[in-house]
Simulated scan of single mutants.
Amino acid sequence: MTKIRIGTRGSKLALAQTRLVEEALHACWPGMETETVVIKTRGDKILDKPLGEIGDKGLFVSEFETALLEKRIDLAVHSAKDLPQRLAQGLEILAVPERADARDVLVQVKDKLPQSPVIGTGSLRRRLYVEKLWPGAQVKLIRGNVETRLAKLADGEYDGIILAKAGLDRLGIIEREKERFHFQPLDPEEFIPAACQGIIAVEGRADWEYREMVEKLSHRKTFLSFETERKVLEVLQADCSQPAAAYSVIEPAGIERERIFLTVMYGGQESRGEWGVEERYALADVLSAQARGNI
């Protein structure tokens, strides 16, 4: 086998996620050689505007898809929540490893927020829930990587910021910075995560000769949640410019049966339900229509 070239963004979090994929590949196939190829995206270059004002989720993906199609890389590692609704022709998601903690986290310097806190986020979904849970809060734009955002919090530009727990865990920040910051995970029933938050997606060419090898890295339940939550985004036609969320959990229900519990939010309206896992797409259709129809 030739060396596998893996494309990634250059942030510490992106590199940490790529290392997880590399380690999984090496664990399955000892001696495999991999190369990390850092690619800068449009989304990495524009840091002074909310994502919804810049464009769709292709901001963090299109350069990787070009590199894949031109065979400059063999795989691309993405945060699944950054994927656009449609991938470029000839490309597929080959694997999704097991999902990390999908919750959002309120990060503060102090244990308690002031009465009218300044809370940083660049997400319309997070803005909506911040304003709902902390009436009187001033929501202020924050962009940049995790370390940049924490530095701004420490400098007093914000009273709190919202970050994804999966990213904090993958970087080891909660344990390392527990004396400096207060980390409060937010209940996903009250602060619904973004669709596919906490999931890593490995993209590659549909006709790549080693695709079946990479497919073995997938975690079955995570892949089912990935498919279901992306189906919600498809039905809602949601992107970075719209406040939307989807979160699913798959649980056993009797002998050889599983049920999927799905929550959908669109424009502040929420809808919840549970069906058999084999009916997950139909459930996504129904709940998405309910959430959208209530606006």
Rank of each mutant, 00 (worst) to 15 (best):
A88V: 06
V214C: 10
D169T: 06
T18L: 10
G7L: 11
V105M: 04
V264D: 01
E65C: 07
L168E: 00
E22M: 15
E274M: 11
L224G: 00
Q237V: 08
I260K: 02
L94Y: 11
E256A: 10
P114S: 03
A253T: 04
L68K: 08
E212M: 07
V286P: 00
L94E: 10
G136V: 13
A166G: 08
F60E: 04
G172T: 11
K221F: 13
A102P: 13
L224T: 08
S79D: 14
L287A: 01
H219S: 12
Q290K: 12
I173V: 14
P243K: 07
D101Q: 04
G273F: 13
K112P: 03
E258M: 05
G10F: 11
E215P: 01
I173F: 13
I255C: 02
Y129R: 03
D187P: 00
F60W: 15
Q115T: 12
L106H: 01
E70N: 12
E131P: 03
Y210C: 01
S62D: 15
Q290P: 00
G156Q: 08
T222L: 07
A88E: 15
R205H: 03
L20C: 08
A289M: 08
L15R: 12
G43D: 09
Q115A: 09
Y281F: 15
G156S: 06
A95D: 06
A244C: 14
G160C: 08
S271K: 09
T2I: 07
L91T: 12
R170I: 01
L287S: 00
E227T: 09
K40T: 15
T34K: 04
I161A: 00
R99P: 01
S225E: 15
R280H: 11
L186S: 01
K165I: 00
S288Y: 12
V139L: 04
T148R: 06
E177F: 15
R257Q: 14
R257Y: 05
A244K: 03
P117D: 05
Q197G: 00
K57C: 07
C28R: 15
L133C: 06
Q17N: 13
R125G: 01
A253C: 13
V249Q: 06
V264A: 02
A100S: 09
A201L: 12
I54C: 03
L87V: 09
I142N: 00
L186E: 01
P188A: 01
G144N: 09
K216L: 14
S288L: 08
W275Y: 11
A67F: 11
A137H: 09
N145S: 10
A195Y: 12
V286S: 03
Y158F: 15
L83T: 06
I161F: 03
E147K: 04
E63H: 14
G156W: 12
A95C: 05
H219Y: 13
D44A: 09
P97E: 05
R127M: 03
P252T: 09
S11I: 08
Q197P: 00
E23C: 03
T121G: 02
A245I: 12
G167A: 02
R143Y: 07
K165E: 01
K140E: 13
I73Q: 02
E22V: 15
V38L: 07
R19M: 11
G276Y: 15
R180E: 04
L83N: 05
E278W: 14
G293N: 11
T263S: 08
G120C: 07
G268M: 11
R230Q: 14
R259Y: 06
D159V: 06
T34Q: 04
Y158S: 01
R127G: 00
A151Y: 09
